[in-house]
Design a protein around this nucleic acid. Structure first.
Length: 325
DNA sequence: ATGCATGAGCA
DNA sequence: GCTCATGCATA
């Protein structure tokens, strides 16, 4: 019983379960280049990463590894593509093998170099799960039984279908215009998120301010952007229509609760180390993660999640540097 | 606006 | 245990 609104699956205009591999998405590989010595992530490299983290900080602390703010991820130089390639998230590679001498105790700890990397190309889409949250889930499945996520699969590879433009520029344009119109309506991002539930679109619940913000700033994956666009577009149109009507009517004559979750804060030094490790190996094995965690005195799960988030960040859409205004 | 977290679906 | 969509919490 529980009101846990986490109904699980949801938004996914389509291919939820069947994650297709978007053509433009084939991350990984970047990591390899760092391997100057043979083992990608063996102690030596870890040690270097560590040294790098410890030393570099003063000088290039901000330029190695990708910046952590949205804007910089954009150095994806190739996206603008008029060609069919939608924004391709690409990874930064700081492969300079200029690491310093190494020392690090991880040497002893770690030695399991990992397999080259993991392949992850599956999943793509907009499968969403809106778990814990206060609003009704967006795209929640149709019935109580979750038979499937009611949505029309839109399909994978040729995401070029109907009105839902998949062109990055189109998306970017829409996002920008969306924001302007939203502001003009005097509606906040949070309002939009909450209002989505009122659209009563099949399976569409609400979204958080975070998501709306990310949509507007293009800091969502391309697929996620595409999935959300029609929904937000629908809301926008509704909202403008309502505003129009209201205006006319006037001419003649509208929260959330609290929760408490603690947000772990990784200190700068540790973060630098993590970034350095990430530059060397974005996908450390569980053991490696454990070692790193121990070394940085962080919980293993925190480190694991950090890496997951880091990888995810690399894939975000956001090519402002290239296509943007 | 963004860092860290959760959880579904998969492999 | 990963990816991905998404969220809470916070700077």
């Amino acid at each position: 019983m529980m009101l846990n609104g986490k109904t699980g699956m949801g938004l996914n205009p389509g291919h939820v379960s069947g994650r297709y591999t978007p053509p433009y998405r084939s991350p990984e590989r970047v990591r390899c280049m760092t391997a100057s010595t043979g083992n990608f992530f063996d102690d030596g490299l870890l040690a270097r990463a560590e040294v790098l983290a410890a030393v570099d900080i003063s000088k290039q602390t901000s330029q190695h590894v990708m910046k952590h703010d949205g804007h910089i991820y954009g150095h994806t130089a190739e996206i603008g593509g008029q060609n069919a390639t939608p924004s391709r998230p690409q990874m930064p590679m700081h492969s300079h093998s200029v690491f310093g001498p190494t020392d690090s105790m991880l040497d002893q700890l770690g030695n399991q170099s990992m397999s080259l990397a993991g392949m992850d190309h599956h999943n793509n889409g907009v499968s969403s799960h809106n778990h814990h949250q206060m609003y009704p889930p967006i795209y929640s499945h149709p019935g109580p039984m979750g038979g499937h996520h009611g949505f029309t699969p839109h399909h994978p590879v040729h995401h070029t279908m109907h009105d839902t433009e998949c062109d990055p520029r189109e998306l970017e344009l829409f996002a920008e215009r969306f924001k302007q119109r939203r502001i003009k309506l005097g509606v906040t991002q949070a309002d939009v998120g909450g209002a989505l539930a009122n659209l009563k679109l099949p399976g569409v619940g609400s979204l958080s301010q975070s998501t709306i913000c990310r949509f507007e700033s293009l800091t969502l994956s391309h697929n996620n952007m595409i999935a959300l666009k029609p929904i937000l577009q629908a809301w926008l149109e509704e909202a403008e229509k309502a505003a129009r009507e209201k205006k006319e009517a006037e001419a003649n004559g509208l929260s959330r609760e609290e929760k408490k979750r603690k947000r772990t804060s990784i200190a700068a030094p540790e973060k630098r180390s993590l970034e350095a490790y990430f530059a060397v190996q974005p996908r450390p094995s569980g053991e490696k993660i454990a070692q790193i965690a121990e070394k940085l005195d962080l919980k293993k799960n925190v480190v694991r999640v950090w890496f997951c988030n880091q990888r995810q960040k690399q894939k975000r859409m956001k090519f402002s540097a290239v296509t943007a205004h």
